[in-house]
């Protein structure tokens, strides 16, 4: 299967702190890749590198065979993204916010209402974004990423700040994206329970290092082989992180 995003020893060091360390990811075309890790693991940093928002310290990556900085415009044209905290113009309405993005991408006018309907924000489109609740801001960010149905979606903790019904709704939406729009999705979370319900492939990150990459059933097999608890996957994840933290601790 073809890799849509591929990294080679991707590393990011902030002054003296290593946020991402020798990462080798293989994100396959047409699948949902769940990027799992506790807070501060380096998920957002990795995604920011994919968007050219921050430069790798060493290592490299390719997106659909292209790389930065030469192909910046072409790569960004293919990616719909949503990183960390919601980003929007508070003085503009939800609809006006999306219209700015639409114009930059050169999409038809109808794409805005399409996107608003998809994330369930259509009836609140005239309200100023700063008056939105956190969950609505999150949906607005998601709408911005989905605008024009890009072939690659990079979604950083997209269900943050949503209520349980909203989480379920957005999860179902993300789940449906690859066959609806023929796209590849990279979605991050700090909850395995969430990734488990959305992703085809899983990458587990801790302190900037990749602990595991593979499918859900491979993860279960891996857990069994390494004597980790398997009846509850969340425990498996926590045990993996703890074991890794212990190893890191003893190395010091």
């Amino acid at each position: 299967m073809v890799n849509m995003i591929e990294t080679k020893n991707l590393t990011k060091i902030y002054s003296d702190f290593t946020a991402v360390s020798n990462l080798n990811l293989n994100i396959k075309k047409g699948r949902i890749y769940g990027f799992l890790g506790p807070n501060g693991a380096g998920k957002s940093t990795t995604m920011k590198m994919f968007l050219g928002l921050t430069k790798p310290t060493s290592g490299s990556f390719q997106i659909d065979g292209m790389s930065y900085p030469n192909d910046r415009m072409r790569v960004l044209r293919k990616i719909g993204s949503f990183i960390e905290s919601p980003a929007f113009y508070g003085n503009l309405s939800g609809e006006e916010n999306l219209d700015i993005i639409r114009k930059i991408l050169g999409l038809p006018k109808s794409s805005v209402s399409d996107s608003l309907k998809t994330v369930g924000l259509y009836e609140h489109r005239k309200r100023l974004a700063k008056k939105y609740s956190l969950g609505m801001k999150q949906r607005l960010g998601l709408a911005g990423a989905l605008l024009g149905h890009p072939p690659i979606l990079i979604l950083d903790e997209p269900t943050n700040g949503l209520d349980p019904a909203g989480i379920h709704e957005i999860r179902t939406l993300i789940r449906s994206l690859p066959h609806k729009y023929d796209c590849t999705v990279l979605v991050s979370s700090h909850l395995l329970s969430e990734i488990e319900l959305m992703a085809d492939d899983i990458g587990i990150l801790n302190h900037g290092r990749l602990l595991f990459e593979g499918t859900l059933s491979e993860l279960k097999q891996y857990a069994k082989d390494s004597g980790l608890p398997i009846d509850n996957l969340e425990d498996t994840f926590l045990a993996m992180i703890e074991e890794d933290n212990l190893k890191r601790g003893s190395k010091r």
Binding site: L53, M73, L76, R77, S85, A87, G90, L105, G144
Partner: peptide, 16 residues
């Protein structure tokens, strides 16, 4: 307007 709600970060991730 760009910095207050991080809109600039979105702008930097768009092809412009």
């Amino acid at each position: 307007t760009e910095f207050a709600d991080h809109a600039m970060q979105k702008m930097e991730a768009l092809p412009q």
